[in-house]
Design a protein around this nucleic acid. Structure first.
Length: 728
RNA sequence: GGACCUGUAGCUCAGUUGGCUAGAGCGUUUCAUUGACAUUGAAAAGGUCACAGGUUCAAGUCCUGUCAGGUCCACCA
C-alpha cells in the first residue's frame, strides 16, 4: 500500500469493477425485499452541477440497503427538458446566425435531438464519476417511444375522466420565446414602475380620472369600474365613457373588487390583457377582441397603433394623451411584474385556447396519501408545506408552443359544429360538446373519431415537460416487464431538492396516484440547496459557482460526497467550501493509513510465523492492554448501534459525523496509539480486534465514501470482493 | 399581506422525545515528530447559545413577545 490514498489511481478502476460484477443491476428476487429509487432525471441539455452531486443521498440509501440485504434498483433516466432545452438550443442557433424560424418543425426537432444525444454522453460520464450505483442496463429518456406511449395514455385517461379540458384563458406568454408558461414558470420580479393618471371623458359631460400602469391597453378596454360603495362615483355608475384615443364608448360599472384607496378608486377594465380584468369582464358579460398579438404587437384597433410593439405603443399613447389634455400625472410605483424564467423578459397575459388539467380532485387524492401515511415526508416540517401546496394548486396549463417536446395527442374534427349530435358507436364515449370538437387518441387514428370522415388536424402544441416528469416513477418502470414493475413499484424513496416540491413532487403524487391507483413512492426525502463557503446562494452573476468536477479532480469523489453530507441538518442547506472538501480528503487519507498500518503489521506477523523462533513476544499482554481492547470492542459496538438507528431515521449526517469522530479520534488517535507496541510486537488479540473494528467501520462508511473504503477493503478481502457483497 | 425556516466559537455549521464542566470542521497559538498518515500528533485560546419574559428540580432545547436575516406563496389597476 502506498503511503497516500490517491483517488485518481482507484476511482475509474473500481467503478468499472462494480459495473463488471453487475452489482448495480437489479433483478427480481422474491426472497429479498425490494428497495427502489428513481433518479430525478437530469436535463439532457446541460452538464453536472452541485445539485446533482446531492443525489449522493440516494447512493447512500441504495448502497446501505444493498448491504442490508435488499434487492435494490436505482433507475436512471434523462429529461428532455422541453422549453429549457429549446431555449439553450436557440441561443446556440443564434450564434450561427440562425433562428428557429429558419427550419421546419421536423428539422428543428431532429437538430435538437442530435444535440441532446451528444450531451447525454457527457452527463452520464459525470454521474459515473460521482460513483453512483445506478442501473445502467435500464437507462430511460423522456422521449423514448415507450415512455411517450405511456404519457399519451395518461393524457387520454385524464381526458376521458373529464380531468383535462380545453379552455380559452389568459396565460402567461413569452413573446420572445414564443410559448406559454405555467404559473410556476413565471417569475415575479419587484420593479419600480410608473402609475399613470388619466382623465376619461364622460359622454354626458365631465371626466372620470383613472390610474393605470398600462395606458396602451386603453385600446382594448371594455369598461371603467368603481366600487359601488364609493360616494365619489355613485352618481356616475351606468353612465358612458368615451375612451380616449380609440373613441369607443364603454360603460361605468360597479364591482366590490375595486379598492377605493388605491389610485383614484376608478379602474379601467381590459379583458384580454390582465388576469383580474379577464374574470371581471366575464362576470359582467363584457368582451372585446385582444389588441395585443403573440408577437407582442398591437392589433385589431384600426388605428396607427396597429403593428407597434407594446412598449412603443405605450409611449405614443402617452404623447397623444398629453396632446389631448387628458394626461394628468405619473407617480413612481412599486410593482410586481411576471417575467420569463428563461429569458427574463416581461410576460404578456394573452388569451389562448390551451389544455388544462383539473387539479382539485387530483390534489385531494394526493393529500389523502399524505394523511394516510402512504407517503411519508422527511424531514417532517415539509409535510405541512406540501399540503399547503396541494391546497393552493390551480388548474395546470400543460400546452407549450415549443417543438422540442412530446406532441399532444389531441385532434380536431373539421366537420364539428356546435351543438354536435353524435352518430355511430365509436364516438359515444366523448363529451363532444364540452370539448368543442376535440378528441384524444393515444395512437394517431386512421380516421376522425368524431365524424369518421374528415381530415382531422393534430394540435401543434407539446406537453409541458413537467407533465411527463410527473409520470416518471411509474412510466419508467412500466417500460420494463410487468413482473419487474410490480416488484419495485411503489418505489421506496423519492429523494430530491425541496425547491421542486411544487413543480415535481406534488405533481408526481397527483398523477401517479391517478394513473396507477397507488402512491408513486412510500417516502419523500428532501435535501437542501448547496451554498458557497460563506452560506451565500450560488449564482453565475455572483461568480461563486463551484464546479463539482474540478473538486473531484483535485480531492477525489469521496471527499466531495462527504463534504456535502458532513455537518449538515437533513433538509437544510449545505455550505460548501474548498477547505471543507480538503478536510474530507484528509479523512479519506486517514482511513487509508489506518488500513495501511494494520496491513503492515499483519504481514510482519505472517512472515514471522514462518520462523517460529522469531515470533515476537507480547510486550504488554497484561490487564491494562486487555482492558483497552475490551473498551474498544464496547465502543465499536455502541457505534454500530447508533449508526443503524441514524441510517434508518435518515440521519445520514449524524451517522457520518459519528464515523468520522470514531475512526479518526478514537480508533486512530487513541486506541491504535495505546496499543501501538502490542500491534507491532505481535499481540494477536490486539491486532484482531483493531482489524475487525476497522473493517466494520469501513463497511459502515462505504455508502458515504465508496471508493476509499472499497480500495482498502480489497486489501483485506481480496481484489475480487466488494464491500457491497459482504454487507453489514 | 400569508406561511415556513434561521439566529450557538473568528468563519461554516451540528446539538435527535429538556438532563453531567455546550461540540465538530476550517482558522488561530504553542509544542512534538526520521517507521501508518505533515493530507500527522499532543495541548491551548475562543461562546452572557440574538434579546426580553414565562413553564420546570432542570431550558441552547418547550411557550409568548421583540429584533435581525433568509426562503416560498399571494398581490391593487
Amino acid at each position: 500500500m502506498e503511503s497516500k490514498f490517491t483517488p485518481s489511481l482507484f476511482e475509474g478502476r473500481i467503478y468499472e469493477f462494480w459495473e463488471k460484477k453487475g452489482l448495480f443491476t437489479a433483478q427480481i428476487d422474491k426472497k429479498k425485499k425490494p428497495f427502489s429509487i428513481i433518479l430525478p432525471p437530469p436535463n439532457a441539455n446541460g452538464s453536472l452541477h452541485l445539485g446533482h452531486a446531492m443525489f449522493t443521498y440516494e447512493d447512500i440509501l441504495i448502497r446501505f440497503h444493498k448491504m442490508m440485504g435488499y434487492e435494490t434498483l436505482w433507475l436512471l433516466g434523462l429529461d428532455h427538458a422541453g422549453f429549457e432545452t429549446q431555449y439553450v438550443f436557440e441561443k446556440h442557433l443564434k450564434k450561427l446566425g440562425k433562428s428557429r424560424f429558419d427550419y421546419k418543425r421536423e428539422e428543428l426537432f431532429q437538430m435538437i435531438l442530435d444535440y441532446v444525444n451528444e450531451n447525454k454522453k457527457n452527463i452520464k460520464g459525470q454521474l459515473r464519476r460521482l460513483g453512483f450505483a445506478l442501473d445502467w442496463s435500464r437507462e430511460k429518456f423522456t422521449m423514448d417511444p415507450a415512455i411517450v406511449k405511456i404519457v399519451h395514455g395518461t393524457f387520454k385517461k385524464l381526458f376521458e375522466k373529464g380531468l383535462v379540458y380545453r379552455a380559452n384563458r389568459l396565460i402567461n406568454y413569452c413573446t420572445y420565446c414564443g410559448t406559454s408558461l405555467s404559473d410556476l414558470e413565471a417569475e415575479n420580479v419587484d420593479r419600480e414602475g410608473l402609475l399613470y393618471f388619466i382623465n376619461f371623458p364622460i359622454k354626458t359631460g365631465g371626466t372620470i380620472q383613472i390610474a393605470t400602469t398600462r395606458p396602451e391597453t386603453i385600446l382594448g378596454d371594455v369598461a371603467v369600474m368603481v366600487n359601488p360603495k364609493d360616494k365619489r362615483y355613485q352618481s356616475l355608475i351606468g353612465k358612458t365613457v368615451v375612451l380616449p384615443v380609440s373613441k369607443r364608448e364603454v360603460p361605468i360599472i360597479a364591482d366590490e373588487y375595486v379598492d377605493m384607496k388605491f389610485g383614484t378608486g376608478a379602474v379601467k377594465v381590459t379583458p384580454n390583457h390582465d388576469f383580474n380584468d379577464f374574470e371581471i369582464a366575464k362576470k359582467h358579460n363584457l368582451s372585446y377582441p385582444p389588441i395585443i398579438n403573440f408577437a407582442g404587437r398591437i392589433q385589431n384597433t384600426n388605428s396607427p397603433y396597429d403593428g407597434l410593439k407594446v412598449t412603443s405603443a405605450r409611449e405614443k399613447i402617452l404623447l397623444d394623451l398629453k396632446e389631448l389634455g387628458l394626461f394628468v400625472k405619473e407617480d413612481k410605483h412599486q410593482m410586481v411584474i411576471k417575467t420569463c424564467y428563461k429569458c427574463s423578459r416581461v410576460l404578456e397575459p394573452l388569451p389562448k385556447e390551451q389544455w388544462f388539467i383539473k387539479i382539485k380532485p387530483l390534489a385531494d387524492a394526493a393529500k389523502k396519501l399524505i394523511k394516510e401515511k402512504k407517503t411519508v415526508i422527511f424531514p417532517k416540517r415539509f409535510e405541512k408545506q406540501l399540503i399547503r401546496i396541494l391546497d393552493n394548486f390551480i388548474d395546470w396549463n400543460i400546452s407549450r408552443q415549443v417543438v422540442w417536446g412530446i406532441r399532444i395527442p389531441a385532434y380536431y374534427c373539421k366537420n364539428f359544429k356546435f351543438p354536435y349530435v353524435p352518430q355511430g358507436k365509436q364516438i359515444s364515449n366523448f363529451k363532444l360538446n364540452q370539448n368543442n370538437g376535440w378528441f384524444v387518441s393515444a395512437e394517431k387514428p386512421e380516421k376522425c373519431l368524431i365524424c369518421g370522415a374528415c381530415d382531422f388536424v393534430q394540435d401543434e402544441d407539446t406537453f409541458d415537460t413537467w407533465f411527463s416528469s410527473a409520470q416518471w416513477p411509474f412510466a419508467t418502470l412500466q417500460t420494463e416487464s410487468k413482473e419487474f414493475s410490480d416488484y419495485f413499484y411503489p418505489t421506496s424513496v423519492m429523494e430530491t431538492g425541496h425547491d421542486i416540491m411544487r413543480a415535481w413532487v406534488a405533481r408526481m403524487m397527483m398523477i401517479g396516484d391517478f394513473a396507477t391507483g397507488k402512491q408513486p413512492f412510500n417516502t419523500v426525502f428532501l435535501h437542501g440547496m448547496v451554498r458557497d463557503g460563506k452560506g451565500q446562494k450560488m449564482s453565475k452573476s455572483k461568480g461563486n459557482v463551484i464546479d463539482p468536477i474540478l473538486l473531484m479532480d483535485k480531492y477525489g469523489t469521496d471527499a466531495l460526497r462527504a463534504a456535502l453530507i458532513f455537518g449538515t441538518k437533513e433538509g437544510g442547506d449545505v455550505s460548501l467550501s474548498e477547505e471543507k472538501v480538503k478536510g474530507m480528503r484528509n479523512f479519506a487519507n486517514k482511513i487509508w493509513n489506518v488500513g495501511r498500518f494494520i496491513e503492515l503489521n499483519s504481514s510482519v506477523i505472517l512472515n514471522s510465523f514462518q520462523d517460529l523462533q522469531k515470533i515476537p513476544k507480547q510486550v504488554r499482554n497484561d490487564k491494562e492492554a486487555q482492558e483497552i481492547i475490551k473498551q474498544l470492542q464496547k465502543e465499536a459496538k455502541e457505534l454500530k448501534k447508533r449508526y443503524m438507528i441514524n441510517m434508518k431515521k435518515y440521519r445520514f449526517s449524524q451517522a457520518l459525523n459519528d464515523l468520522h469522530e470514531f475512526i479518526w479520534h478514537r480508533l486512530a488517535d487513541y486506541y491504535v496509539e495505546q496499543l501501538k507496541d502490542e500491534l507491532k510486537n505481535g499481540n494477536m488479540s490486539a491486532l484482531d480486534t483493531v482489524k475487525s473494528v476497522y473493517l466494520e467501520n469501513i463497511k459502515m462508511l462505504h455508502p458515504f465514501m465508496p471508493y476509499v473504503t472499497e480500495a482498502v477493503g480489497q486489501v483485506f478481502y481480496g481484489k475480487e470482493t466488494s464491500l457491497l457483497q459482504i454487507g453489514l
